[in-house]
């Protein structure tokens, strides 16, 4: 079976990189003594698929992970087991059973929402009205100007900052640091990834509901 997990990272583990998070889950699942599926090859690893790497320093309440298991296990039981075994700082919200053969979570993500706690919300709100938002992307010694504007779906005011809903995933992705750089704003007090979504019939829905 494939277990779809929604989890979060609070400030205590916001400074752990994506690769480290993978290891944390691999080891936690081993400690939980679950019937994990393993990859083939010289160094077998548990089959885990993460939705999207979270940049360092950002907290989140909307991370997703597909866990491949050899045997059926009740979602609630798995959730409780994980809650018992994960190190502090990881919030565990929900587990659902996904059918075999379902598209991996990383392939379905289309949008993300970020809560950016900033003293300059007006600059963000102004950006929404602009036609384009140029950004110089540096990659492997090459520089390329890209327009971030089409990647932004919406920007709205919240208490202490703004909510930015943007494209995310393998096709088109807005990195929060690129947005901050393009806007030329001060370093925000905190950035929080509120959730990840996939777009279906014009609606943003949870990756756990993708079957």
């Amino acid at each position: 079976m494939i277990a779809g997990l929604k989890f979060g990272k609070d400030i205590r583990v916001a400074y752990i990189s994506h690769l480290d998070v993978i290891r944390v889950f691999e080891r936690a699942l081993r400690r939980a003594n679950l019937p994990l599926s393993f990859s083939q090859g010289f160094s077998p690893k548990p089959k885990l698929v993460f939705a999207q790497a979270l940049p360092l320093g950002i907290t989140s309440s909307g991370e997703y992970l597909d866990i491949h298991l050899e045997e059926e296990i009740k979602p609630l039981k798995l959730l409780l087991k994980l809650a018992e075994i994960m190190p502090p700082g990881f919030d565990l919200y929900e587990v659902v059973a996904l059918p075999e053969g379902i598209k991996p979570v990383m392939a379905v993500i289309t949008h993300a929402s970020y809560l950016i706690y900033t003293s300059e919300p007006e600059i963000f709100l102004h950006a929404e009205k602009m036609k384009s938002l140029p950004y110089i992307n540096k990659k492997g010694g090459k520089t390329k100007e890209v327009d971030l504007k089409p990647l932004i779906k919406s920007i709205e005011l919240i208490d202490g900052g703004v909510r930015v809903v943007s494209q995310a995933g393998s096709k088109a992705n807005l990195r929060p640091d690129a947005l901050l750089c393009a806007l030329g704003v001060k370093k925000p007090l905190r950035i929080h990834r509120e959730d990840l979504y996939l777009e279906r019939d014009g609606q943003l829905i949870s990756p756990l509901k993708r079957n």
Binding site: R12, Y15, I16, S17, G57, P87, P88, G89
Partner: peptide, 23 residues
């Protein structure tokens, strides 16, 4: 250490060295 990480994150190569909250 947490404060220093929060304040100077971009200057610190491996923040995971200074967390102290490992399993």
């Amino acid at each position: 250490y947490q404060d220093l990480l929060e304040k100077h994150l971009s200057r610190i190569e491996k923040p995971g060295r200074y967390l102290g909250t490992e399993l």
